[in-house]
């Protein structure tokens, strides 16, 4: 028999090397991510809860129907009433930051995948790996690189949540009909003109579906992220679990559900609006 491969030690050595070698980079990323999360959180905290709820309901009405606006208002008022408003806003800031980073990283990567079969071939197994590896595992190197707190939570969420944006951007661009791409080429478009005037507009529903998935996945990470010190509603759930407080667990869980439904419907309706818009 072969002796056991020292895979664990290899990985640790690799992570250690990364940590010592790229410390300035990680500090810089940490600084930026923290700035964004805190900026969003501060803004949301600064807005009074009732004003925030009215604004959210107005956006819901603008994107969807009055029923959705009503649900948004009632749901968010319930969260406020139960006393989870501040934590929910922290969680929202974390989720939005993770989604923002996912879009900034994921859409260009998706475009690159669509333009090169080699890139797609290299990236696809990596994405599979990122999505199937249990999310808890990311927490360990995330803590090593970024310490405790909200930043490793955001990073772990991004790693777990970015694949759908990359995949669906790639898919959306590849699904643009070949004769349209040919037409764009035949009239002398450069690669970027083709991308911005044709491929991205037509791939938009697919890209938005990816972003929707990404937001949902990062929301599903908030409880896990709370294990390494990310503040927010996830911490309430985690605390309820460790102390076996069923009632508190239910309340906090319900807040996450409301947040998830509101975010999901909003991003989905953005896609639908886009579709309606493109049909005149």
């Amino acid at each position: 028999m072969f002796p056991k491969l020292p895979l664990d030690r290899w990985v640790e050595a690799f992570v250690d090397a990364l940590e010592s070698g790229l410390a300035p980079l990680f500090n810089f990323i940490s600084f930026c991510v923290e700035g964004v999360v805190n900026g969003i959180a501060d803004l949301f905290h600064w807005i009074p809860a009732l004003v925030f709820i009215v604004l959210a309901a107005a956006l819901a009405y603008f994107l969807g129907k009055w029923k959705f606006a009503l649900f948004t208002a009632v749901g968010l008022l319930l969260i406020d009433n139960l006393g989870y408003w501040d934590h929910t806003v922290d969680t929202l800031a974390l989720v939005l930051t993770a989604a923002l980073i996912s879009v900034v990283v994921g859409v260009p990567l998706g475009v690159w995948c669509a333009q090169s079969d080699k890139v797609r071939g290299a990236l696809t197994p990596l994405l599979d790996f990122m999505q199937t590896m249990p999310a808890f595992v990311y927490l360990i190197p995330a803590v090593t690189f970024f310490g405790l707190g909200v930043v490793p939570g955001v990073i772990a969420s991004v790693i777990f949540a970015v694949p759908p944006t990359i995949r669906l951007t790639n898919l959306g661009i590849r699904q643009v009909p070949g004769d349209l791409v040919e037409a764009a080429d035949a009239f002398g478009s450069t690669r970027n003109q083709k991308l911005f005037k044709l491929q991205i507009p037509l791939a938009m529903p697919s890209i938005m579906a990816g972003i929707n998935q990404t937001i949902m996945l990062s929301l599903s990470m908030v409880v896990i992220a709370s294990m390494i010190g990310a503040q927010g509603i996830g911490a309430d759930v985690y605390g309820a679990v460790t102390q076996i407080k069923t009632g508190q667990g239910f309340e906090a869980g319900l807040a996450i559900v409301v947040l998830a439904i509101v975010l999901d419907r909003m991003t989905q309706n953005m896609v639908k609006r886009k579709r309606r818009g493109s049909n005149g």
Binding site: D179, E182, A183, A186, G188, K197, L198, P201, L202
Partner: peptide
């Protein structure tokens, strides 16, 4: 050449739907 000298018309029209 593609911009100035050659125009093309396609079988399935290939109009940009958006």
């Amino acid at each position: 050449v593609r911009r100035k000298q050659i125009g093309m018309v396609f079988q399935k029209f290939a109009l940009f739907p958006h």
